[in-house]
Amino acid sequence: MDMNTTQPPSTSPSGSLRDVFWPRPGYVATPILMGINILVFVGMVLTGVNIMSPTGQDLVNWGANYTPLTYGGQPWRLLTACFLHIGLIHIVVNMMSLRVLGSQIEPLLGTSRFAVGYVVTGLTGSLVSLWWHDMVVSAGASGAIFGIEGMLVGLLLTNLFDAAARKALLKNSLSVVGINLLIGAGIGADNAAHLGGFLGGLLVGLSYYYVIRAELGWPAPRLLARNAVAFGLSALVVVVLALFVFSRSPL
């Protein structure tokens, strides 16, 4: 029998400017991550990058995931690409998504786990994009945003929620992911990064299971009920995937 435990994520975040950008308990990593993305975009615009349509060279200059450079000794681009956006519409859509998902899921995961999950799934998205495409200039927080949804889905595959809530949330989450993948395919978005982020999120969410279980007072293996172990498992996902992708470098 499933235990009735964690509260389902809230679906109606407050919309005032202060509520969106001001950290508070259970909502710290989300506004900070939004702020970093926005500051990077403002920096691009202030240095002369077109606000609506940056060139490929602009994106590369600011740290986009670019095949020859990422494979050629600049792997840090896998991370910087997660905070870089291709025009005003791109960043507005992504930050709206990050705001909604963050307000719902950060309180469930905890701030440190949410932040680590954003970084890890952003990296898995970048890695899968790099592996999938022959040549790519990729940027955006979308991989990490899909990763946040994937972390929730990973936890929904466990018994942290009662059966009714789990079924409804799982159906809703998978519908959102499917619809966004279809939209991405229609507009030529980097669905490889989206899927990479989502699948990375599934694994990260599962790695958090025993930690959250222990915090709820449930029986859990002592070793697996530690944040350090959960973070280590998350990092291992990135390391293994990176070794696989870079071992198949076309350069």
Rank of each mutant, 00 (worst) to 15 (best):
R24V: 11
P68Q: 03
R99N: 05
V42C: 15
N94H: 06
V137K: 01
S97C: 10
G72D: 07
S103L: 10
Q57G: 10
M52S: 13
V119I: 15
W131G: 11
T11H: 11
T124W: 13
S103A: 11
H90A: 01
D134F: 10
V28F: 15
I36L: 15
L69F: 14
P107F: 01
V60Q: 10
V120W: 06
N94V: 05
V100W: 07
V100Y: 10
W22C: 10
L127F: 12
H85R: 00
V20W: 12
T111C: 12
S126R: 08
V92P: 00
V119F: 13
Y27P: 01
N94K: 04
G63S: 09
V116D: 03
W22N: 12
P107S: 08
L123F: 15
I38S: 09
G43I: 12
Q74P: 02
Y118L: 13
W62E: 01
V28L: 15
T30L: 06
A29L: 10
S14Y: 05
R24F: 10
R18T: 15
P31Y: 03
A115K: 06
W131N: 11
A115S: 10
F114H: 07
L127Q: 06
N61C: 02
P25A: 14
Q74D: 10
D134L: 07
T70E: 04
V60Y: 06
W62H: 05
V49P: 05
N37D: 15
L108W: 06
L109R: 00
G125H: 11
I91V: 04
S97M: 09
V60D: 03
V100Q: 06
S14W: 03
S97I: 09
S126D: 04
G87V: 00
V92L: 07
H133T: 11
L101E: 02
T121L: 10
I89L: 08
F41Q: 05
W76I: 09
P13R: 03
T55E: 08
S10H: 02
I32E: 11
G117Q: 07
G125W: 00
H85A: 00
T55H: 08
L84K: 00
V45E: 04
G117V: 04
T124F: 15
L17W: 15
S126F: 08
P13F: 03
G26Y: 13
L130N: 02
V116H: 03
Y71C: 05
S16Q: 09
D58Y: 01
V136S: 00
Y118R: 07
P9I: 01
D134K: 12
L46S: 10
G110W: 02
T80Y: 01
R99D: 03
